[in-house]
């Protein structure tokens, strides 16, 4: 390539000073990077995927499900709730039938509380109820509403993140009878083998009760009587068919003699449970 004698040219090698300058450029670049990501480490991991918010939005457009009397009202603390502006308590304005117990389920990855009052400066803060700290992934202890009055509206907030606020409204207790009944919940994550699936796993109901089934998972499930697909009696007593994610179904027990009925999910046969009719 070159026509002259290159051996006679001097060769300049890197001096220690120049090399240190080079290392400094790398070091400063990495330090700037670290200064950005270290404080944001948790923020980068705070938002659930948009597809889940879409599912929640569709869910809230539907009329709110009738809460079962003498049952439990669940209020979800969404994943990412700790970030200001994100959805936090769901439902934000819960209609709680008098006498129901309220349970807050913390799906976020930081602790929260649900404390009555409008904020920490409210002199009545925590007077009506205070769940104290609900750790990530856990549920609060049930808050009893039997001392409250119909029509009461109680504001509450999170003591750790005071911008997270919600309220509960006490409604008349739903009339008893055939419509009321125990609730069976398909837990979020139930489709993964080994995870908890049905809650309660063994449910006791009176003959004539209607069991309300709610699918909190994000894949479809069924509740089908029998021990599995090879059971000749599979689906004989009840079969909800496919319950879509966030959907619900009911099981009528009026034609079921007392006894115990194993059930399973046709899509995920390792999800099993039992209903006992008394």
């Amino acid at each position: 390539m070159s026509t002259h004698h290159d051996d006679e040219e001097p060769i300049y090698r890197t001096t220690p000073k120049r090399w240190m300058q080079g290392l400094l450029i790398i070091g400063i670049t990495l330090a700037i990077g670290a200064a950005i990501f270290v404080p944001n480490f948790d923020n980068m991991y705070a938002n659930p995927p948009p597809v889940t918010r879409l599912a929640q939005a569709q869910q809230s457009q539907q009329p709110p499900a009738q809460p079962a009397a003498a049952g439990t009202t669940q209020i979800i603390i969404h994943s990412g709730a700790a970030v200001k502006g994100n959805p936090n308590f769901d439902p934000n304005d819960a209609q709680v039938p008098l006498g129901n117990k309220i349970v807050w389920v913390n799906q976020d990855n930081v602790p929260h509380t649900a404390t009555s009052g409008t904020g920490s400066s409210d002199p009545n803060s925590g007077k009506v109820f205070d769940t104290t700290i609900i750790n990530p992934g856990e549920s609060s202890k049930p808050v009893d509403t039997k001392d409250m009055k119909v029509g009461d509206t109680i504001a509450y907030y999170c003591q750790i993140h005071p911008y997270m606020t919600g309220k509960i409204t006490i409604t008349a207790a739903a009339s008893g009878g055939a419509a009321s009944g125990p609730a069976l919940t398909i837990l979020s994550g139930a489709a993964v083998k080994g995870n908890p699936n049905f809650q309660p796993d063994e449910l006791t109901a009176k003959k004539g009760d209607t069991i309300q089934v709610t699918n909190q998972d994000n894949v479809p499930h069924t509740v089908t009587s029998g021990t599995g697909s090879s059971d000749p009696d599979s689906g004989k007593y009840f079969d909800t068919k496919i319950i879509d994610p966030s959907g619900s179904a009911s099981i009528d027990t009026s034609n079921m003699p007392s006894g115990s009925y194993p059930f399973y999910c046709q899509i995920h046969p390792y999800m099993t449970g039992k209903i006992t009719i008394t």
């Binding site: 990077g33 659930p48 995927p49 597809v51 994000n218």
Partner: peptide, 28 residues
């Protein structure tokens, strides 16, 4: 920079459904 700032938890395979319906953003 995007990978090192976000610290996703999807594993290097990013298998769905986890990477779609659970993996927290904006890391993923």
């Amino acid at each position: 920079a995007l990978i090192w700032m976000g610290w996703a938890d999807v594993t290097w395979n990013a298998y769905p459904p986890y990477s779609i319906i659970r993996a927290p953003g904006p890391a993923a």
